[in-house]
Computed example of a mutant assay.
Amino acid sequence: MNKNGPIIIIEDDLEDQEFLEEVFQKLAYPNELIFFTDGLKALEFLNKEEVNPFLILSDINMPKLDGFALRDKLKTDAALTIKCIPYLFFSTALNQKAVIQAYSASVQGFFVKQSSLSELEKTISAIMEYWKRCAAPNNF
């Protein structure tokens, strides 16, 4: 896990992208934010050898390649698995089936998009602080 690497945000709603960008700016984390509107574009980027992100925040319902399909591709690709990139769902699609499917795919977290900036800030802060403190096999 590259704690100084970029944060990949896969979100097709431009308003949600703006909210997330505003929250990250307010929290002043030094990580670059890289946005994608679909999973296929994100996968192409992640497959570049020199790319080593800190974490991925992914919506579930997206065009071309949804969050579940993208997670499956990342989990089964040896070159991407070795990068130890935490994969978190950040979605409004909260239901038991989606949560079970996410954790069955070894997603490291399932978070609900909040409608208020202050609640979104609390969630992003908790995510960032947790993963900044975690150790990963490739940290050694």
Rank of each mutant, 00 (worst) to 15 (best):
G39A: 10
I124E: 02
D66C: 06
I100F: 06
R133H: 10
L80I: 05
F19T: 11
P86D: 05
Q101M: 02
E44C: 07
A135Y: 08
Q108M: 08
L120G: 10
I100N: 05
A126D: 08
K64G: 02
F24V: 09
P30E: 06
P30N: 06
K113Q: 04
D12T: 00
T123R: 04
Y130G: 00
S125G: 11
G67M: 10
N138V: 13
T123F: 01
E11N: 14
V99N: 02
G109N: 04
L46K: 07
D38V: 10
D12Q: 14
E119K: 05
A126C: 09
S115A: 03
K41E: 14
V112E: 11
T76S: 11
L70I: 08
A79M: 07
Q96M: 07
F90Y: 13
L88C: 03
D66E: 07
E119T: 00
L88F: 06
K75V: 01
R71C: 14
E121Q: 08
R71F: 00
E119L: 01
D59C: 04
Y103N: 04
K64C: 11
D16T: 13
K64P: 00
D59E: 12
I85T: 02
A78I: 11
L80D: 03
A93N: 05
E121P: 00
A135L: 12
L27V: 06
F140K: 12
I124W: 01
F19L: 15
L120C: 10
S118P: 01
D66G: 02
L70R: 12
T123Y: 01
L94Y: 15
Q114G: 02
L55D: 10
P30R: 04
L33G: 09
V112D: 07
A102N: 01
K26Q: 13
L55R: 04
N47S: 13
F24R: 03
G67K: 12
F45D: 05
N47P: 03
A93E: 12
S115R: 03
T123L: 09
I60H: 08
G5D: 08
F54A: 13
P30V: 09
Y103T: 02
